[in-house]
């Protein structure tokens, strides 16, 4: 039972998709809340961390 229907192929460039899995403060939302499968959650986490490094997604809302 997944709340979101994830596309088959997605990566760190799907910024709008990844933004659904972070909170307003920039934290990654746990899978138990979103209902994403474990394998997809691992993918999401990896891609969010890449996107953060490339300044596509904020680490936190405290950036100056």
């Amino acid at each position: 039972m997944s709340k979101y229907e994830l596309p088959k192929n997605f990566d760190y460039k799907n910024v709008n998709l990844l933004k659904q899995f972070i909170t307003e403060t920039g934290k990654i939302i746990p899978a138990r809340v979103t209902g994403v499968s474990a394998s997809n959650q691992r993918k999401i986490t990896r891609y969010i961390k890449i996107a953060r490094f490339l300044a596509l997604i904020p680490y936190t809302d405290m950036h100056k």
């Binding site: 460039k13 910024v15 490339l54």
Partner: peptide, 20 residues
């Protein structure tokens, strides 16, 4: 800033980032 990523396959389509 730069980043080199290992990927299994290259997609020939335009990336979502480009479209956005």
């Amino acid at each position: 800033r730069h980043l080199f990523l290992v990927v299994k396959e290259h997609s020939l389509e335009k990336s979502q980032l480009f479209i956005d």
